[in-house]
Design a protein around this nucleic acid. Structure first.
Length: 632
RNA sequence: GCCGGCGUAGCUCAGAGGUAGAGCGAGGGUCUCAUAAUCCCUAGGUCGGAGGUUCGAGUCCUCCCGCCGGCACCA
C-alpha cells in the first residue's frame, strides 16, 4: 500500500482556532479521505507553533507562563479538530522535546555543511511579525499590523540563504508542480529573480521562549527554523518523509517555497514534493479580523447544520486556490438547495419508493450511465473540489429529472409486465446511482455519507452494478432537514457569541475596551536635544502624485522662508488626495537633512500621527496659526 | 511605476473566433414517490470602455477604466 504524507500549516497559538484554520484543515482531511478511497494510506499532520516573543507577552498579559498558555490554546485546537471529526493522525507541537531535538539536528546538519555563521544585527524589530523590518527608522510601525517597532541589536546565528538563490530558482523552474497554483509560483519566481536573497537570522538572544540552540548559550531558534521543521519532526523515525503535500494559505507561501527547501538542501535532506496554497476566506467580502469582530468559528455552524454542511459549502463554493467569501446567507442557501432539496430529498424519495413498491428490496441490476465517476475523480485529483462536486450534483439533478420523466408512481399502478419491468429499472438506477454518488461525495461529507450508507444498507466499490437483486434497504430518515434561514442564522450567531465568550473566559480575558497599544516612549532627552528639532508651521501650495510611487506625494510647502517654498516628498498618498491638501496648514521638520526620494529631493518631513496599519493623520491646529511659527 | 490575475444575467461563476450559458434567487405552471421537495416555462445581460484584425470577436491585438495580489515606494 503506498503512502501519502500531507500537512496543514503549524498554526500559531496567538488565537483560538477559527474558520480559517478549519478551512485548511478540512481540505487536508478531505484529501486524506480521497487518498484512502484510492487505497492510499494517507497520514495527516497538523500542529501548533508555540514559541516566540508574542506568545511570551500574550501569556504574561493574562498572568500565565508561556507553557500554560500554549497548553491551553493547543488543547483548543486539538479539541476543535476532534469535535469536528477531522481525521488528524498527529498534532505536533513545537514545544515538544522531540521536536526540539529534531530542530537541533537540522541545525547541526546545516552547520556541518558550512551554512551557519555568527553575525550581529541591529534593526527595528516588529514583535507582531517577529521579524526585523527592513529599512525601518525610529518611530516607524509594522507595515502590516501598525504596531510599534523596537530597536534591537543582537548577535545572531545566520543561515546562508543567499547561497541557495540559484538552486531555489532552478527548483521552481524545473518543477512547476512544486508550488501551486501557478499564480503563487509566478510570484515567488518573480521575487527570486528580482530580489537578492539575504542571509537569514535564525536565532535570537532577546527571546527566552524558544528552543535553545545547542552550544550557543543564550540563543534560541527563531520562528521559521523552528516551525517549518515540524513537518519533519512529526514523522521522525518513520518512512513518511519527504512530505507529499504541504497545504497552506497564501501569506506563508514564501517561507515554504524558499526557506524550507533551502534549509533542507543545506542539510542534504529530501525536499517535500508539493506545496499548495489556497486563498483567503473572507467574511462577506471583508477580511476577518479580531478588530472587526467578524471572526467565525466552525463549531456553532456544526451544531446547527452539521459540519458536513460547512465542508460542502467551502469546497463547493470556493474554487480551491482562490480567495473565497463566507456568509451565513450563502451557507444556508447552499444547504437548503443542494443538501436538503438535492441529495437529501433524492435519497428520501428513492428509498421510499423502493419501500412502497418493492417492499424495501432493490430490483435486479440494469445498466446505466455512470460516466460522472471518472470525471469527478479527475477533478478531485487536481484539487478542483468545486468541479468535482458540481459534477456529482449534476448527476443528482439528472436523477430527479429522470424520476419525473418515468413517473414511477404511475408505473406502480400499471400491472402490465412492461410497466413493472420499467419500474424495476427506474428504481435500480436511482438506488445504485445514489450509492455511487454517496461514495463519491463521502470525502467531502463523511459524516452524512456514513448515515446515507446506513439507509442504503450497502457501500461497495465505485463501479456500477454492485448492488445485487433483492438487497434490503435500511431504515429511512431525513439526513438534511430543511432549515429556516432566519432561524438558523440566528441560532448560529447566538452560539458564536457563546463560543467567543467561552474562549475569552478560558484565556482569562476580560471584556476590555479596544486594546490600546501605544508605542513605547522613547529614551529621555534634554531640552537641548529637543530644540535641535526645528518644527514649523507651513502651508501646502501644491501637491501631486509622484510618478512611480503609490505612497508618495510631491508637495510644495511655504514656511515663510525668503528662499521660497520647500519641496517635500511625503508618504501620505494613500491617506490624502493631492487636492485635499492644497492650502492646508501642516507641521514640518524644517532642519532635517535633505534626502532624495524617487529622484526628488525632499527638504524636510511632514509630521503626522501614525495610525493602525501605518496610515498617517496630519498634525493640525484648532486655532489660527501663522505660517513659519515654530513649535516648542 | 513594474509583473500577474480579474471585470459575462440580481448573486456565484462557466464559455476562449461562427447565432450569449449553468446553478442559485425571483415570477408562473405541473406531478404527487419525496424534506411545502421534484419537474417544466420565464431572465432578454451594450459579455468593464474605446479602437483595430477578420466574412465574422466575451473569444485575437492595442489603448483606457475599475478591482485584487506581488514587487518597488513611506525619512
Amino acid at each position: 500500500m503506498s503512502k501519502y504524507y500531507l500537512t496543514t500549516p503549524i498554526y500559531y497559538v496567538n488565537a483560538a482556532p477559527h474558520i480559517g484554520h478549519t478551512y485548511t484543515t478540512l481540505v487536508a482531511d478531505t484529501i486524506k479521505r480521497l487518498k484512502a478511497m484510492q487505497g492510499i494510506e494517507a497520514y495527516l499532520v497538523t500542529g501548533t507553533d508555540e514559541h516566540g516573543q508574542k506568545i511570551e507577552r500574550a501569556a504574561a498579559k493574562i498572568g500565565k507562563s508561556p507553557q500554560e498558555y500554549t497548553d491551553l490554546i493547543s488543547a483548543e485546537f486539538e479539541q476543535t479538530w476532534k469535535q469536528l471529526g477531522l481525521s488528524i493522525d498527529k498534532s505536533q507541537r513545537t514545544t515538544s522535546p522531540q521536536h526540539a531535538a529534531a530542530v537541533a539536528k537540522l541545525f547541526a546538519a546545516c552547520d556541518a555543511a558550512g551554512y551557519i555563521y555568527k553575525g550581529s544585527y541591529t534593526g527595528y524589530y516588529s514583535v507582531t511579525s517577529e521579524a526585523f523590518v527592513a529599512d525601518a527608522k525610529e518611530g516607524d510601525v509594522d507595515p502590516d499590523s501598525g504596531q510599534p517597532l523596537e530597536l534591537v541589536t543582537e548577535e545572531n546565528l545566520f543561515f546562508k540563504l543567499s547561497a541557495f538563490q540559484d538552486k531555489i530558482i532552478e527548483l521552481h523552474e524545473t518543477n512547476p508542480q512544486f508550488l501551486q497554483p501557478d499564480s503563487r509560483r509566478n510570484e515567488v519566481l518573480a521575487f527570486l529573480k528580482n530580489e537578492k536573497l539575504q542571509d537569514l537570522s535564525i536565532s535570537r538572544t532577546t527571546v527566552k521562549w524558544g528552543i535553545p540552540v545547542p552550544e550557543h548559550p543564550g540563543h534560541v531558534f527563531y520562528v521559521w527554523f523552528d516551525a517549518l521543521m515540524t513537518y519533519w519532526s512529526a514523522v521522525e523515525g518513520t518512512d513518511l518523509w519527504p512530505a507529499d503535500l504541504h497545504l497552506m494559505s497564501k501569506e506563508i507561501v514564501r517561507f515554504h517555497a524558499i526557506y524550507w527547501p533551502a534549509f533542507l538542501m543545506a542539510a542534504g535532506w529530501p525536499l517535500p514534493k508539493r506545496i499548495y496554497s489556497h486563498g483567503w476566506l473572507l467574511f462577506e467580502d471583508n477580511k476577518m479580523s479580531k478588530s472587526r469582530g467578524n471572526i467565525v468559528r466552525a463549531t456553532p455552524i456544526q451544531k446547527v447544520m452539521g459540519f458536513d454542511a460547512l465542508r460542502y459549502f467551502l469546497l463547493r463554493e470556493i474554487p480551491f486556490g482562490s480567495d473565497g467569501s463566507f456568509s451565513f446567507d450563502a451557507l444556508v442557501a447552499r444547504y437548503n438547495s443542494d443538501l436538503a432539496n438535492g441529495l437529501g430529498n433524492l435519497l428520501s424519495r428513492t428509498l421510499s419508493m423502493i419501500l412502497q413498491y418493492r417492499e424495501g428490496k432493490v430490483p435486479a441490476p440494469v445498466e446505466a450511465d455512470a460516466s460522472a465517476i471518472p470525471v469527478a475523480l479527475a477533478h478531485y485529483e487536481n484539487f478542483e473540489f468545486h468541479k468535482a462536486l458540481e459534477t456529482i450534483w449534476r448527476w443528482i439533478g439528472d436523477l430527479d429529472k429522470y424520476i419525473v420523466e418515468n413517473a414511477p408512481w404511475k408505473l406502480a399502478k400499471d400491472s402490465s409486465p412492461e410497466a413493472q419491468a420499467r419500474l424495476d429499472a427506474v428504481l435500480y438506477r436511482c438506488f445504485e446511482s445514489l450509492r455511487l454518488i454517496t461514495a463519491l461525495a463521502a470525502p467531502v461529507i463523511p459524516e452524512s455519507a456514513a448515515k446515507i450508507a446506513l439507509q442504503l444498507n450497502i457501500q461497495g466499490p465505485l463501479t456500477w452494478g454492485h448492488t445485487p437483486q433483492g438487497h434490503a434497504i435500511g431504515e429511512i430518515s431525513p439526513i438534511y432537514p430543511r432549515l429556516d434561514a432566519k432561524v438558523a442564522i440566528e441560532q448560529m450567531k447566538t452560539l458564536e457569541d457563546e463560543e467567543l465568550a467561552r474562549q475569552n473566559t478560558l484565556l482569562g480575558k476580560v471584556e476590555e475596551a479596544p486594546v490600546v497599544n501605544i508605542p513605547p516612549i522613547a529614551e529621555t532627552i534634554s531640552i537641548d536635544d529637543f530644540v535641535k528639532v526645528d518644527l514649523r508651521v507651513g502651508i501646502v501650495l501644491s501637491a501631486e502624485n509622484v510618478k512611480g510611487a503609490d505612497k508618495l506625494l510631491h508637495l510644495k510647502i511655504d514656511i515663510g522662508e525668503p528662499t521660497g517654498p520647500r519641496t517635500i516628498v511625503a508618504g501620505i498618498a494613500k491617506a490624502y488626495s493631492p487636492e485635499s491638501l492644497i492650502n492646508r496648514k501642516v507641521v514640518i521638520v524644517a532642519n532635517l537633512a535633505p534626502r532624495k526620494l524617487k529622484g526628488i529631493e525632499s527638504q524636510g518631513m511632514i509630521v503626522a500621527a501614525s495610525l493602525e496599519g501605518g496610515s498617517p493623520a496630519l498634525a493640525a491646529f484648532l486655532e489660527e496659526v501663522p505660517i513659519g511659527a515654530r513649535l516648542k
